[in-house]
Write a protein that binds this DNA or RNA. Structure first.
Lengths: 200, 200
DNA sequence: CCAGATATGTAGTGTTCACTACAGATGTGG
DNA sequence: CCACATCTGTAGTGAACACTACATATCTGG
């Protein structure tokens, strides 16, 4: 098999730069010119490697969720439902205000509403948020089986709740809320999970 | 004073139509063509009346928040902090899944991240969300003064929390969550407020 | 009924967008 | 060293965008 000229840029490094542009400006707000400049490549290289703008977004989302899933594995490793919620939401407060990244969460900032022709994008983001929620739900199902959550507790509702709070915190972060403000939200939010927990 | 030819469309009716387009597609995703068609007018009428696209958005936001504030007044009229939170979040669950409107909340769907040249839009939305949060905070301050909330409770944090949950619910609604799913989230969320309340 | 003022519809304007044709560069297999 | 495959940079492409010039229509004040 003939190989041809090898690619001169690293795809993952380039994706990290593209991720940041989508994160800051959203899918529709990000232009190919901004993306190629951030990635340090020219348009033909982008299209050869990722197909089109939406393909680039998906690749960036894949990378984002891959990194995030590693962290989520640590989150659900916490010993109790309450500890899972706390670790998750406090971590979110830190991550979404980390100056190394744009504020907020790519899975929201990417675009919750898009124009004609990009209707797919919000679905794509929602699907990845749903993955997170499922992971939480599975963890809360286990927590209930372990007697960690009350008999009356609904693991799916709890997971949806924690997911909703984290999304809300992300929007707040993107509009200027600082780490401390988000941690206060997380602190209150955890108490709802605690209310569903068996006493310790 | 000379009056000239009178306007042939009703500005508020037209705004309602524009609001829906922004709500469904976001600021950047909404095109002037879609807006004018929905409003039943031609571009020159739009620009004469609202200045430009961003002016139209602001006018639509004004109308949106005006209607919403009427509802918020009812919310904060609830007798206790817990009742306020419940009335607010349960109402949000209903409103954000009302088939009469696009799903979710205009103050989020409008655009949490925008491209170069529209950086103002996310700020504009955030400012109006902040108004809501302030109203909640004032109510919770009163609740604490009335002995309805514990001495350890932080009214500002509680308000930020309720605001975050409602934003999170909005994003969920926009990605397909139904009324019942949102009411479950609201139900869990209220328990955190309850945990900050004095016993009854 | 006339003069001035404002609104409307048609038909554009220049700009920016996502995307690509093409030619030259750089690799591999024989 | 050659045939071929793939990548890269330059320089565009048509389409869609927000916005507007202009002629016409419809009002008010006098």
């Amino acid at each position: 098999m003939r190989m041809g000229r090898p690619r001169e840029f690293d795809a993952e490094t380039a994706l990290d730069q593209a991720m940041e542009v989508f994160w800051r400006h959203g899918y529709e707000g990000a232009t190919i010119a901004q993306l190629t400049e951030a990635m340090g490549i020219n348009p033909p290289s982008l299209y050869a490697c990722f197909g089109n703008k939406e393909g680039l977004l998906k690749a960036a989302l894949d990378r984002y969720t891959k990194l995030r899933n590693i962290w989520m594995d640590e989150v659900v490793a916490a010993p109790t439902a309450r500890a899972v919620a706390e670790r998750m939401l406090m971590g979110i407060a830190d991550k979404q205000t980390d100056p190394a990244n744009p504020p907020g969460c790519l899975l929201v900032q990417g675009g919750v509403a898009c124009g004609t022709g990009s209707e797919n994008v919000p679905f794509e983001l929602a699907a990845r948020r749903a993955q997170n929620e499922e992971q939480l739900r599975d963890r809360f199902v286990r927590a209930k089986a372990e007697g960690d959550l009350k008999e009356s507790a609904d693991p799916a509702a709890l997971a949806r709740y924690v997911s909703a709070v984290s999304v809300g915190m992300g929007v707040m972060a993107s509009s200027g809320a600082d780490r401390e403000a988000l941690r206060q939200v997380a602190d209150v939010a955890v108490q709802a999970v605690e209310a569903q927990s068996t006493k310790r």
